[in-house]
Simulated scan of single mutants.
Amino acid sequence: MSRVRVQNFSISLDGFGTGEGQSRDAHFGHAGDRLHEWMFATRSWDQGGSSGVDDLFVQQFESGIGAEIMGAGKFGHPGWHEDPDWKGAWGPNPPFHTPVFVLTHHTRPSIEMEGGTTFHFLDASPAEALKTAREAAGDRDIRLGGGATMIREFVVAGLVDHMHVVVVPILLGRGVRLWDGLEGIEKDYRVEATSSSSGVTHVTFTRNGA
């Protein structure tokens, strides 16, 4: 069976996966781009970038992925559902290139984008959303794109097989935290950490027995 993966999810030292004050022009709130600068500096993102361990992890973003599930807060700023023209923050050719299932209480017709991405909008539980995504992905893996609240819900439901979290050496102080309510998660996963010269630490969680 296909695996459920979290790939390249960045958090601050104090555990925040996004900052406070998300808006149309500030997708990650007051965090800005600081959680993702490590990624932008890689060769996979920029031809003149680094080819080290960060780049190796970035390369795994699309590998074996057949569909993505993301939360409403990743798809757009608070209130995006009131804008019928909102198609996400990634322009006409989003970086997913698969079916993407957006979990939201405000469903709307699917949106087909360039490059193979089609956004579908579901009001569903984690288990229900995963069943739908698996039907679309076939034998390929399902990526959980975030945000932090949605990832927590899938972890609590016991649905995450592999999780790659990037700890970025900044303090945000406020926003949406990843780890709240996940005490003892290490009992269910093999945990490995890899430090990078960029200053970030890649922490991987692989479900025991997976």
Score class of each variant (00 low, 15 high):
Asp85Val: 14
Ala124Pro: 01
Ala127Ile: 10
Val102Met: 01
Arg152Gln: 12
Pro84Arg: 09
His106Phe: 05
Arg152Asp: 13
Ala129Met: 09
Leu103Trp: 09
Met113Lys: 05
Thr104Pro: 01
Val100Leu: 10
Glu112Gly: 15
Ser125Trp: 02
Val160Met: 00
Thr117Gly: 11
Met150Asn: 12
Asp139Cys: 11
Val160Ala: 06
Gly146Phe: 11
Pro95Tyr: 03
Ala89His: 07
Leu159Trp: 06
Met113Val: 14
Pro95Asp: 03
Gly147Trp: 09
Glu153Ala: 12
Ala137Cys: 13
Phe96Cys: 04
Leu159Asp: 00
Ser110Trp: 09
Arg134Gln: 14
Glu135Lys: 13
Val160Thr: 00
Glu153Val: 00
Gly88Cys: 10
Asp83Phe: 11
His120Thr: 06
Glu153Thr: 02
Gly138Val: 07
Gly91Glu: 02
Thr118Gln: 13
Thr107Gly: 08
Val155Leu: 14
Gly115Ala: 08
Gly145Thr: 01
Thr118Leu: 05
Asp139Glu: 15
Ala127Tyr: 08
Pro92Asn: 07
Ala129Phe: 04
Gly91Pro: 01
Phe121Lys: 10
Phe121Arg: 04
Val156Leu: 11
Pro109Lys: 09
His81Val: 07
Gly138Phe: 11
Glu112Phe: 02
Ile111Pro: 04
Arg152Tyr: 10
Thr117Pro: 08
Trp90Met: 08
Leu122Val: 02
Pro94Trp: 00
Ile142Lys: 03
Gly158Ile: 11
Trp86Gly: 07
Ala133Met: 05
Phe101Leu: 11
His120Tyr: 11
Met113Glu: 04
Gly91Trp: 03
Ala157Pro: 02
Leu103Gly: 07
His105Ser: 12
Glu82Pro: 09
Glu82Arg: 12
Lys87Asp: 15
Pro94Gly: 05
Glu128Asp: 14
His81Ala: 10
Ala148Leu: 14
Ile142Thr: 04
Ala129Cys: 08
Thr104Arg: 05
Val155Ser: 05
Phe96Arg: 00
Met150Phe: 14
Gly91Lys: 00
Leu144Arg: 04
Thr117Gln: 09
Thr118Arg: 03
Met150Leu: 15
Gly115Met: 01
Asn93His: 13
Val156Ile: 07
Asp141Leu: 12
Ala133Gln: 08
Thr149Pro: 10
Met150Trp: 10
Trp86Thr: 07
Pro99Asn: 13
Glu112Val: 12
Glu128Ser: 03
Pro126Trp: 01
Gly146Tyr: 00
Ala137Ile: 02
Leu122Met: 07
Ala127Gly: 07
Glu112Lys: 14
Leu159Pro: 02
Glu153His: 09
Ala124Thr: 02
Leu144Asn: 03
Ala133Cys: 06
Arg143Val: 06
Ala136His: 03
Leu130Tyr: 08
Arg140Gly: 05
Gly145Ala: 06
Ile151Leu: 08
Val160Pro: 00
Pro109His: 06
Trp80Gly: 05
Ala89Leu: 07
Leu144His: 05
Trp86Gln: 07
Asp83Ser: 10
Gly158Ala: 15
Asp123Ser: 12
Thr98Met: 13
Ala124Lys: 00
Asp139Trp: 05
Phe101Val: 01
Ile151Asn: 04
Thr98His: 08
Ala136Gly: 05
His97Ser: 15
Leu122Ala: 04
